[in-house]
Design a protein around this nucleic acid. Structure first.
Lengths: 137, 137
DNA sequence: CTCTCTGCAAAATTTTTGCACTGCT
DNA sequence: AGCAGTGCAAAAATTTTGCAGAGAG
């Protein structure tokens, strides 16, 4: 990591507050790709005055400075992920959990798609759906 | 097409109403992957009494009988597509339009991912993002 | 003629915004 | 001390639901 979250906030003109650090750390500490509400509930015990509005405002900043990614698997709300390395996601159609998929992107296919559609593609998000190991039993 | 929309509705115990046919036909007639609101506005002139609730209820039925797909590119609302063949989507980050991508899925990679994650994968949704030909000029 | 469907309005959800007070720098 | 940030509550936006009257089978 070349630049930590504190420096990054400061360098972008944002103040460093306990809430912002707590939200980012909570996101880093989990693999469950929580929604805003989930983060809020998880932080309530430690930060009793924390509000949902602050969670959303902080998420917005973290998005802007590129420290988190937003997922949308087709649920009614967004999920967030502090893992910003190139990876995809798989969601269990039974229990709803979301796991990571580390699989390299096929660059040849990408070129073909660019030619086919006329788009200059800068990003891709892949969502797989199926039954997780636990729900398969 | 082995079974048309009228038969399919009837065979699944749903009544065939002008609203349902209109919504499905509107979806078939467009390539722009509209949201519920867009469909509603488009149908207003022809069906002045059409309500947004009916659009949502009909979309729900069409989803259940497998006649439409739901897309979510990370916008605040869902988009719908009557093209249920296996294909993916690309969205322009400038103008927001959504186009189709017809590119075969790499089955080998899929097997690898199943082994890696322990999931039995039944579906995948791929969203590409970039600048469309028009916005690239 | 029955029973589902429609359409209105109200409710539920998720996310955003306004504003006085707090607290980072 | 100055000014952005927090937290509350209210607003906005999307989707769902309840119910009385309309219409398909």
């Amino acid at each position: 990591m070349t630049e930590n979250i504190t420096e990054l906030l400061r360098n972008n003109g944002y103040k460093v507050t306990p809430q912002r650090l707590a939200i980012y750390e909570a996101l880093c500490a989990t693999k469950e790709h929580p929604k805003a509400e989930t983060l809020f509930v998880k932080l309530q015990p430690t930060y009793p005055t924390m509000s949902l509005a602050t969670v959303y405002k902080t998420i917005d900043i973290l998005k802007k400075i590129g420290k988190i990614r937003v997922l949308n698997t087709g649920e009614d709300s967004f999920r967030y992920d502090a893992d910003i390395t190139s990876h995809h996601h798989v969601q269990c159609t039974v229990c709803g959990r979301v796991d990571d998929v580390y699989e390299a992107v096929d660059q040849k296919a990408l070129k073909k798609i660019e030619k086919q559609t006329g788009y200059t593609i800068t990003e891709q998000r892949v969502y797989f759906f199926g039954k997780c190991a636990k729900c398969n039993k």
